[in-house]
Amino acid sequence: MTKLSILDLAPIVSGGSARQSLRNTIDLARRAEAAGYHRYWLAEHHLTPGVASSAPAVLIGLVAAATERIRVGSGAVQLGHQTALAVVEQFGTLDALHPGRIDLGLGRSGQRAKEMSAAPPPPPTTESRIVNGLLIPPPFSFASIAKSPIIRLWASLLQQPGAESPDFADQVADIQAFIDGTYRSEEGFEAHAQPGEGADLELWILGSSAGQSAQVAGERGLPFAANYHVSPASVLEAVEAYRDAFKPSEVLAAPHVMVSADVVVAESDAEARRIAEPYGLWVRSIRTGAGAMAFPSPEEAAAFEWSEEDRALVADRLDTQFVGSPDTVVERLRVLREATGADELLVTTITHDHGDRVRSHELLAAAWGDGPS
């Protein structure tokens, strides 16, 4: 059976607070474990009004302490803002307290933002593709967002003045060396992470394209999480690049892929569409460079006056969100699994009402358990 897991941003909703959001995360994690989900991952986002998951290592510790069996991890640690040693010490501490349950998911973050700001826009196209039943929308260019003054401010706040992020591949190699106890400096000096050395961590690489993340994951024989829910246009290329680069390791004998999806499930298609309606307005807030707004209510979303430019800005995300009854969403997730060859699926759900979010995950888990194999 293909395993289902959850990615949680600890969303802050309009009229809510970070305090309540974090309490909701703990509640959802407990319910996810009871429903049979395999992993519970916490995202890392900073300086945004609508997301409370800014310190994933701290939140992972709280979730692990509140649950008993479910794996808990990061989706993903932003390596552009931290050193390899700091990451290993944090997650080594988590493993020491919750042995055998901690996943360390790694992402390129700061490095990728710099590349996006310098990259030329993708070739202009308005054509979507259907590949093995899966919708692949036109690519979205993040260059204008990466160049915005607010993004540059955030980058400056997340690093010490003058700091430069090492190459992602080098950071991943250093993390593995610290965990294995084999780290040596260029001058040949040893350094040992305590806690961290010998930690029983499951190491993952997360990626949105066929670029360095997919290459590093494949070449180092690590599992790879491909990002359909944020970058649906490039998910197939990302998975293909990972598999092409894969080399067997002590971790994996064959490639292992998890693919993400935005999901909202309710008892009926109509009810799911109602509670999912604020999603487009929320994505718009991100893509205009302001950062994720507090997630609006369906009533607030219905009152927003959309322009054609607004709709074009979020079309790829709306078209690839999986919204509907349990049967509707399960069928679409099966298509995603078959088209990408996913070994696992990672679902993320944001609704204004916490009860709707809990119910969405519970309905999906119940329906999924009866279907895919």
Rank of each mutant, 00 (worst) to 15 (best):
A146M: 09
Q171I: 01
G133F: 01
S373A: 12
V58A: 13
S53Y: 06
P223K: 05
L158N: 12
D262V: 11
L281Y: 04
A233N: 10
G105W: 11
R19I: 00
L157V: 08
S156M: 13
V358G: 04
L153R: 11
V264G: 04
L62Q: 14
R332H: 09
A292V: 07
P166Y: 12
G80N: 02
T340P: 02
V259C: 08
T349M: 10
L281G: 03
E127W: 08
P138Q: 06
T348R: 00
Y40R: 06
A290P: 01
Y183A: 08
L59R: 01
L7N: 03
A292D: 05
R357I: 13
A86W: 12
V251P: 05
P278K: 12
V314H: 05
V259M: 01
A303M: 05
P120F: 08
D370G: 07
Q215Y: 12
T348H: 09
L59Q: 11
I350R: 15
I151V: 15
A266Y: 05
R184M: 11
H38A: 14
L134S: 03
W368V: 09
R71L: 11
L28A: 11
A118G: 04
L157T: 03
G291T: 01
R30G: 15
S307W: 04
Y37N: 06
S17L: 09
T2S: 12
A253N: 13
R39W: 06
S209M: 02
G50C: 07
D353K: 03
D327S: 14
L97I: 13
A245D: 07
G61S: 06
L9P: 02
H45S: 07
T126K: 10
V329D: 04
A272Q: 03
S360F: 03
L104G: 03
I151T: 12
F168L: 15
I205T: 05
E202F: 08
G75Y: 09
G50T: 05
Q82F: 15
R101T: 09
T125E: 10
V87M: 07
L62P: 00
V257N: 08
I136F: 03
I151G: 01
D353F: 01
H38T: 08
R220P: 06
L222G: 01
R273A: 15
A65P: 14
P223V: 09
S185G: 11
A18W: 00
I145W: 00
Y183R: 04
Q78S: 13
K247F: 07
P195G: 00
S14H: 07
V72R: 02
A342Q: 06
L135Y: 05
E362Q: 15
T348Q: 13
H46F: 06
Y228P: 13
P120E: 11
T48F: 14
L47P: 03
H38Y: 14
V335F: 04
A367V: 10
G75F: 05
S249N: 09
R31Q: 14
I60R: 00
L4G: 09
F91K: 05
G341A: 07
R39T: 00
S21Y: 02
S285T: 12
A366V: 01
V259I: 13
Q194Y: 10
A10Y: 00
L104D: 01
S21D: 06
E187Q: 15
Q215D: 14
R23C: 10
V283S: 02
G162F: 10
H354L: 04
E299F: 03
E164D: 13
A367M: 08
A226D: 02
L318Q: 08
L135C: 03
